[in-house]
């Protein structure tokens, strides 16, 4: 083996990737070649590189790769990167705690953000929307079928109804000038009087009213009507007689004319028959 051959195999030798035969050949060459031995000696002391070496080198060369990694982070999480980019990202995330933490946050956000898609508005929201969109007739119908029973079942409804009823009664019966203002006073008077008087007096009053307002006018009208009917019947009878007389007279007259017509016809016939049987009769 010469020096060039050793140099070709140097990296593999240092990485321990040579087979037994090759390693022995390299070892024999190193025993006799001081130049090649100088190349290999520094590596014979196994020393791990300092932890921040990569960062230090990058800081003095291209700068940290985190910017590039973060620009590809979402695509990497979404599995949109192709082969090499995918591997490089994975390698960077293995070594960069900051980017790894950021990836974890993005991943978790992707899971939690969709939970914000729906928020619960206040309970009256749907009713308000329907009130603003549905036609008035539909809204009224819905209120009547759904709203009215709910409204009536409220605990305050009884007290509200009592209050309104009281106010209505006060307005109707207690307001000066109201047509029913005197009703409560009369009611009290009635309550204080004898129950029998309360019954008899109204009955007598009713009877009197009936007599004056119904019976007597009806009787008078009936009497007047009866006289009218009689008079009409008489007139009709007289008229009927007149008509009968006229009809009778017409019948008599007609009979006479008919008889005279028939009589003249008979004479003519008989005259013709005599003429026919007596040729010598002078003709008019």
């Amino acid at each position: 083996m010469d020096c060039r051959e050793l140099e070709d195999r140097l990296e593999a030798l240092l990485d321990g990737e040579l087979d037994e035969g090759e390693r022995r050949r390299c070892a024999r060459h190193l025993e006799v070649c001081s130049g090649c031995r100088e190349l290999v000696e520094p590596f014979e002391v196994a020393a791990a590189p300092p932890g921040d070496l990569v960062g230090a080198v990058l800081a003095r060369t291209s700068g940290a790769a985190c910017g590039r990694a973060q620009s590809l982070l979402c695509a990497w999480l979404d599995k949109e990167l192709l082969g090499t980019d995918q591997e490089l990202m994975a390698a960077h995330l293995d070594s960069c705690a900051e980017c790894r933490a950021l990836a974890a946050v993005v991943r978790r956000l992707a899971a939690e953000l969709p939970q914000l898609a729906e928020l619960r508005p206040d309970p009256g929201f749907v009713a308000a929307v329907l009130a603003a969109t549905l036609p008035p007739s539909v809204r009224l119908r819905r209120w009547w079928t759904a709203g009215w029973p709910r409204w009536v079942r409220r605990p305050r409804f009884a007290s509200e109804a009592a209050f309104i009823g009281t106010m209505a009664l006060a307005l109707i019966f207690a307001t000066p000038g109201s047509p029913l203002e005197a009703v409560p006073t009369k009611a009290l008077e009635l309550a204080r009087t004898d129950p029998r008087a309360r019954i008899e007096t109204p009955v007598a009053a009713l009877e009197e009213r009936f007599t004056t307002q119904v019976k007597e006018p009806l009787s008078a009208r009936y009497a007047h009507g009866e006289a009218e009917i009689r008079a009409w019947a008489k007139a009709a009878e007289a008229r009927g007689r007149v008509v009968a007389d006229e009809v009778g007279s017409w019948i008599g007259t007609s009979r006479g004319r008919l008889a005279s017509l028939l009589g003249s016809t008979d004479e003519k016939d008989s005259g013709h028959k005599e003429d026919a049987s007596n040729p010598n009769q002078e003709k008019p």
Binding site: L116, E118, L119, R120, F125, V126, L130, T133, V138
Partner: peptide, 17 residues
């Protein structure tokens, strides 16, 4: 109208969000 109400109920969360 019933369909509209159902639609409102179904999407009230999203619209409000």
């Amino acid at each position: 109208d019933l369909a509209w109400e159902a639609l409102v109920r179904q999407y009230q969360g999203r619209v409000y969000a």
